[in-house]
Design a protein around this nucleic acid. Structure first.
Length: 416
RNA sequence: GUGAGCGUAGCCCAGUGGUUAAGGCGCCAGGUUGUGGCCCUGGAGAUCGUGGGUUCAAAUCCCACCGUUCACCCCA
């Protein structure tokens, strides 16, 4: 038997109700904030993602890379931002009034080892606002994220924020960090030894107990920001305070994608357990230039839909159920079946969600099915009704039923 | 890539060496000659993840593989 590939999952109707809920909230809010929908292909030129996340980054190692029949090297979408930037450049969206505000829902693929909230195919809802460096946009995006999560009914979320500087000031900090760490080189966990050499910022992120004390004494990036970055970050925080958004400053928040500059942020659910980020984002003022465009500032976030669903379930948040059919049409005998088929067709034409009985179940069996489908009405057509062109209309909640002419049924149901 | 736990029907699961592998949910049918939900009865549905080994005898013990879950790593 075939199975869905490792790390992928089928989304069955019951689960799909969560998706509908989330997508409706997301779409509504984006409209409210002036963000427009965009979709990009599931696969892109491999180099697009390679640009977005240079060498050592795990995201590169985890990409699904393949060659098509012409030999072109492609990759399944690994994250949402780079394709949006590509589309921004390709379609000359820089000619529109700036900033351009976009949102998307996309699958993302990473060859990882699956575990709770981590899949090889997951889905992201993301927003990007491109073409303006105003810190008000950082704040707007964070507020949008906050409103999105709380509109879903989630509670107890914490938003963490930090600034990781820009090309001017970050290198000085990295040097200071390295210098500080040299003294502790022998006490570091194996992972951190690698980090020190390859990606020092990530040292701050280590969860190893033995490294915690070292991290606590490490220099803070916010002390090394250039005056522009300093001002920018202060403005972001000021604007957020004005909006009433509570954020925690986390000096250790650095984030994985290399394209981030200045503001970075994450939203996490409460609880001691695993602190998986539901949403992560930040400013990326260099990415578009690195992809071949003019220097173009931008800021955005990506929310993990599967992780949000997990949290909705954890918090026992009731979501609207999928809509149920309204009418079930049962029949007795071959002649009645013909009449039933005609009626079902007519009801559907009238916009009434209808299920047609099939096979040769007993009336009892048909009503059982009608019941489990949750319909409001069952129409029964039998030999007796055939004689005078009527049908029985049964109200499933009350059990009341009456004989009505076949031609009247649609009108009667619509009336109620 | 590293470590740990778990694999018995569609789902939840009992069963730790010995007769036809138990139960619940769900499904199907019957309990009215044309009537659902509750109840009752019956039925279908399992090569006990796969392969190998130990044993007179394996779902049960051992090994390998596969799958899955969780953690690390990384990230949404």
């Amino acid at each position: 038997m075939f199975k869905a590939p490792r790390g992928t999952r089928d989304i069955l109707p019951q689960e799909r109700a969560y998706w509908r809920y989330i997508q409706e909230k997301a779409g509504h809010l984006c409209q409210l904030y002036g963000y427009q929908p965009i979709s990009t292909p599931v696969f892109e030129d491999y180099q697009l993602f390679a640009h977005a996340a240079p060498d050592g980054t795990d995201i590169i190692k985890e990409m699904y890379v393949f060659k098509d029949r012409s030999g072109q090297e492609l990759a399944l979408t690994a994250e949402g931002t780079a394709p949006i930037c590509r589309a921004y450049l390709e379609h000359g969206l820089f000619n529109l009034p700036q900033p351009v505000k976009l949102y998307y829902v996309t699958p993302a693929f990473r060859y990882e080892r699956p575990q709770a909230g981590r899949y090889r195919q997951h889905h992201q809802f993301g927003v990007e606002t491109i073409g303006d460096a105003d810190p008000a946009l950082d704040a707007e995006v964070i507020e949008l994220m906050h409103r999105f999560l709380s509109s879903l009914g989630l509670s107890g979320l914490s938003i963490e924020i930090n600034s990781i500087g820009c090309r001017q000031c970050q290198p000085a900090y990295v040097e200071a960090l390295k210098k500080y760490y040299v003294d502790y080189k022998n006490q570091l966990c194996p992972d951190c030894k690698v980090r020190l050499a390859r990606n020092p910022l990530r040292l701050l992120d280590c969860k190893e107990a033995s490294c915690q004390e070292i991290i606590a004494g490490a220099p803070k990036i916010t002390d090394y920001l250039c005056s522009e970055c300093q001002t920018h970050f202060q403005s972001v925080q000021k604007y957020l305070a004005e909006m009433g958004i509570v954020c925690q400053l986390n000096h250790r928040l650095v984030r994985g994608l290399d394209y981030y500059t200045r503001t970075v942020f994450e939203a996490k659910p409460e609880g001691e357990g695993v602190q998986i980020a539901l949403v992560g984002g930040g400013r990326y003022d260099n990415l578009i230039e690195e992809l071949g465009g003019k220097p173009t500032p931008a800021v955005g976030f990506a929310a993990g839909i599967e992780r949000i669903i997990i949290t909705l379930k954890d918090q026992n948040i009731a979501i609207p159920p999928l809509p149920e059919p309204v009418v079930y049409v049962a029949y007795l005998g071959a002649e009645a079946k013909l009449e039933a088929i005609k009626l079902v067709s007519r009801l559907r034409h009238e916009g009434i969600a209808t299920i047609q009985a099939t096979g040769d179940k007993s009336l009892k069996g048909q009503l059982r099915q009608a019941n489990s489908l949750g319909v409001k009405y069952t129409v029964i057509i039998g030999e007796r009704e055939m004689e005078n062109k009527t049908a029985v209309l049964r109200d499933m909640a009350s059990g009341e039923q009456k004989n009505i002419s076949l031609s009247e049924i649609a009108r009667l149901i619509k009336k109620r």
